[in-house]
Design a protein around this nucleic acid. Structure first.
Lengths: 158, 158
DNA sequence: CTTCGTGCAAAAACTTTGCAAATTG
DNA sequence: CAATTTGCAAAGTTTTTGCACGAAG
């Protein structure tokens, strides 16, 4: 598929190729498709969901679920992808290289929203400074019940 | 087993009994053992690890892995236990009821400091509200380099 | 052309479920 | 006693692996 120029995406591919080269691994059609999907569909997906997403969007590619698992693991090990997991759901994968954001996660259905808050980030920096740390990054996840599930759960209790 | 008085533990048991009563469930030997283990071994454990831990510490109790899974799920649903999953590992369980704190972690030496910041907590609540979530808890970890390691690393670079 | 990757199917690992017997309230 | 729970084994799920063929460097 022809795409417009996209430096961000090209950088991502370059990053991946560098990792591959460093480990004498090969840049295959499947690995490219997976990275492309990761890039084109921002969000958090289970391996199975990637599998279906890729089948749907690349009908020709006869990709196997095993390849999805192998590639996601590779991408996770290389820090190109990060994972998050909560409640009943398994581990969900997302591109690591996105502008920084934190997560709000529904404990009931696993819905994940993203947010960013400069105020908190500044405060975190202050706390780190006060403790003499040089901060490099952070993880912040808020857990709760999303609006939809609040409704559902209320109904059940009647 | 006779234990010293332990209000904290008793409260935990009471909390559990309340949940059980509310749902017409029963307080069994196995459920007690699991809660006791959760209390006596602070840390994050996989279901399998609980199973082994309990077998080791309660040789008489012939507890089944299915009961571990069933009870952990129950405890998670009741918010007595929370789960988290780091990297390769699956979901790990820990007691939720510990006094809340967040962490600053040194990426170099692993030093962990704890902190608490009302300001950030309030802000987190606001963010959750804005998204319609009812917040139950959160995880916040700041990663960086601690003062000691900063010195060490500077020397190395000379 | 050598090495690595892939899909497939089988295996392993992990989690849930059905059931008869045991335990709890 | 009635209702729930348990351990066990079987059934589901999810993830990994072995292998022969195909693709990449």
């Amino acid at each position: 598929m022809p795409f417009l120029e996209n430096i961000e995406y090209d950088n991502l591919i370059d990053e991946f190729k560098t990792v591959l080269k460093k480990n004498s691994l090969k840049f295959t059609k499947q690995r490219e498709t997976i990275l492309q999907t990761l890039y084109n569909f921002p969000g958090h997906f289970l391996p199975e969901e990637f599998y279906l997403l890729i089948k749907e969007n690349n009908p020709k590619s006869n990709i196997g679920i095993a390849t999805i698992y192998r590639t996601l693991n590779l991408l996770e090990d290389s820090d190109i992808v990060t994972t998050i997991s909560f409640g009943k759901n398994g581990k969900k994968y997302e591109l690591a290289n996105k502008p920084h954001h934190d997560h709000i996660i529904c404990k009931n259905c696993g819905l994940i929203l993203e947010f960013e808050d400069k105020n908190i980030e500044k405060r975190q920096n202050d706390i780190a400074l006060k403790n003499g740390f040089i901060l490099t990054n952070h993880i912040m996840q808020l857990y709760g019940i999303c609006p939809q599930c609040q409704k559902k759960l209320n109904k059940k209790e009647i």
